[in-house]
Amino acid sequence: MNDYKCVVTGGSGYIGSHVMDALRLRGCDVLNVDIAEEVFQADISNLESVTQVFGDLRPDFVFHLAAISNARLALEDPCKAVEINILGTTNVLEASRRANVKRVILASTCWVANAMASGIIDENTPFLPEGGGHIYTTTKIASEYLVRDYQKLYGLPFTILRYGIPYGPRMWKGLVLRNFLDRAFSKQPLVIYGDGSSSRRFLFINDLAKAHALCLQDIAINQVYNLEGMRFVTLKELADLVAKLVGNVEISYQEESSRVGELKYDRKIVSSNKAYIDLGWQPETDIESGIQQTIEWYKQEILSAN
């Protein structure tokens, strides 16, 4: 246990709220800095706003999660995605430098693997010059480079966490499992785009959040970690599990041409071995158990509120 003071940008969000819980369990003093937060409100696209809050709070660690994290929104408004994800990250880094923060932990994504060659991908796999083919991916790659630059030029330590595809309680509308649950509990068919063979290594949100507490260890200074789920799960398997656990649910298949540039795992395996070796982290929640926990949350928090 420790008494580190930790700021989480975007702590009001889906992932951020779970990260705050995990850090509190670790014994940290955790503060939420968010544009939606009344006490420690800050707009990361405004440097002076972030600088003032960080200067007042003087955190030891900054967990930077605030971002446009919905890839479809990034595609619809690329200028906003660049402003929030790239300029916002720069502002958080600069405010952290001015406040003498011990380390900034950046929330990145497994989507950056789209900018990497096929094969086994680890944290040393280089980015290809043609990039990742999506605005969201590019903003995250740029953020990773900015974090590294701030360490080299200003001596600001970092840790980069590349998230797998998270799911679980508090997940927002638009994420695939949340979409399935919304449809299942309103007696609508689950819609799969394509033939359902597309796969993801879904990562339960509590497992993802625990990695943030573990990366407070000194071994994580100036390191990058891939955080992937246990195994590949096809969209068909995900839909079948929801249908089984909810009951009396139909599944339909459709085509949608607007889904361009999204994450593809074709002939790629992202390794999380480094996180296990350095931090002792590994996913612990299997997909069926994770979906069941998410369904229980949905019944208690979503259905009961309607």
Rank of each mutant, 00 (worst) to 15 (best):
G132F: 02
V176R: 02
S96C: 04
R97I: 09
N206R: 08
V112F: 01
I287K: 05
R231K: 11
T285W: 00
V33H: 04
G13K: 10
L203G: 06
S199E: 13
G27W: 10
C6S: 07
R24G: 08
L216I: 15
V101W: 00
N222M: 10
N306C: 07
N114L: 04
I35M: 12
P157M: 14
K210R: 13
V19W: 01
V30P: 01
Y298A: 04
N46C: 11
T89N: 00
K299Y: 09
S304I: 05
S96W: 00
A220S: 10
V147G: 05
E76Q: 08
H212A: 14
E38R: 09
L203S: 07
Q254H: 08
E262K: 02
E123G: 13
S69G: 14
D56N: 14
T138M: 14
D122R: 12
N273F: 15
Y298F: 14
Q41C: 13
G13A: 10
A243V: 12
L214M: 15
S271F: 06
K236A: 03
E250G: 12
I121M: 09
I192C: 14
G119R: 01
A213T: 05
I291R: 03
R26W: 11
W281K: 09
Y163D: 08
K187T: 11
I192V: 13
V53W: 00
C28L: 14
L241W: 08
Y298K: 08
T159E: 02
G280W: 15
R162P: 09
L23A: 09
W281V: 07
E255H: 06
T109H: 03
N226K: 08
S45W: 01
S69I: 03
L57N: 05
I269D: 15
K244S: 11
M230E: 06
E94A: 06
I221H: 13
L227C: 04
D34V: 07
G164W: 01
R72S: 02
T125N: 09
N179V: 05
D3I: 10
A305T: 04
Q41D: 07
V19I: 13
H64K: 09
V224G: 09
I120N: 13
G290R: 01
L73V: 08
G11N: 05
Q217Y: 12
T159G: 06
N32Q: 13
K152I: 14
L153K: 13
N222I: 00
S17N: 09
V8F: 00
E48W: 11
V224T: 04
C6T: 08
D278W: 12
T137P: 02
G27C: 15
E123S: 15
P189R: 11
Q300C: 13
L93M: 03
P126W: 09
Q292G: 10
W111R: 02
I291D: 00
Y265F: 14
G196N: 12
E256F: 15
D3A: 13
P129N: 00
D286W: 02
F54T: 02
N179Y: 11
T109L: 03
A305C: 09
L47D: 06
L25C: 15
A211P: 01
E256Q: 11
G131T: 09
N248Y: 08
N206A: 14
S304E: 07
L203H: 04
A211H: 02
D29G: 13
G196M: 10
A113R: 02
N32F: 10
G196V: 05
V104W: 00
S12I: 11
D218V: 15
L303T: 05
V147Q: 04
C6I: 12
